[in-house]
Computed example of a mutant assay.
Amino acid sequence: MQIVKKLLHARGLTSLLFLIALFVIVGIINPSFLSPSNIAACFNTSVVYTLVAVGMAFTLFTGNLDVSIGSNLGLVAAVVGSMLRDGQPLMLAVLVGLLIGAVIGLVNAWGVAVMGAPALIFTLGVNGILRGIMYVYTNGAWVENLPKEFKDFSSVTAVGDLTVYYCVTILAVVGIHFLLTRTRRGRYFQAVGDNDQGATLVGLPTLQTKVLAYVICGVMAAIAGIIFASRIGFVTPQSGDGYEMKAIAACVLGGVSLLGGVGTVLGSAIGAVIMASISYLLVFMGFSSNYDNAITGVILIVIVVADALIQHRSMVKNRRARLMARVSQDDAADAGAEKGGDAK
Rank of each mutant, 00 (worst) to 15 (best):
R326L: 13
I29C: 13
G263R: 00
V235Q: 02
I29H: 10
A272N: 13
V262E: 10
L281Q: 07
S46V: 08
A229S: 12
L17P: 06
Y291F: 11
L17N: 09
A57Q: 03
A109Q: 07
V202Y: 04
A77L: 07
I303W: 01
A249V: 03
S257R: 02
V76W: 02
R85E: 10
V304E: 00
N127F: 09
T181Q: 13
G140H: 09
A222N: 02
D292P: 06
I223C: 15
G140K: 11
A113D: 01
V164G: 05
A213D: 02
I278K: 00
N64F: 01
L171F: 10
A141S: 14
R184Y: 12
I301D: 12
T209W: 01
N72G: 05
I176M: 09
L7C: 09
G175Y: 07
I295L: 10
Q208E: 13
I170E: 08
I39E: 02
I176F: 07
V173H: 08
Y291H: 05
A250F: 04
N195R: 07
L73Q: 06
F284R: 09
T183Q: 09
Y137W: 07
D330E: 15
V273P: 01
D86I: 08
G203V: 04
I170Y: 09
G218H: 04
G132V: 07
G255D: 05
D194Q: 12
C217K: 03
I310F: 13
V256I: 09
R187Q: 14
R313Q: 15
G242E: 06
F58Q: 00
I39P: 00
V54S: 02
K339Q: 10
D152F: 12
C217W: 02
D194V: 08
L259Q: 15
M1Y: 12
V164Q: 09
A269Q: 11
M134C: 11
G260N: 04
V173F: 08
V4A: 14
I295P: 01
A337G: 12
L282S: 07
G340W: 11
S230L: 09
Y291I: 04
T264A: 08
L162Q: 06
K6A: 10
I69P: 03
S82M: 15
N108R: 07
E338A: 15
V80N: 00
R231Q: 14
V112K: 00
L146G: 00
F43V: 02
V215S: 02
A325N: 15
V94T: 10
T296I: 09
V192Y: 02
N293V: 13
N127T: 08
M275L: 15
H177C: 06
S154M: 06
T157M: 08
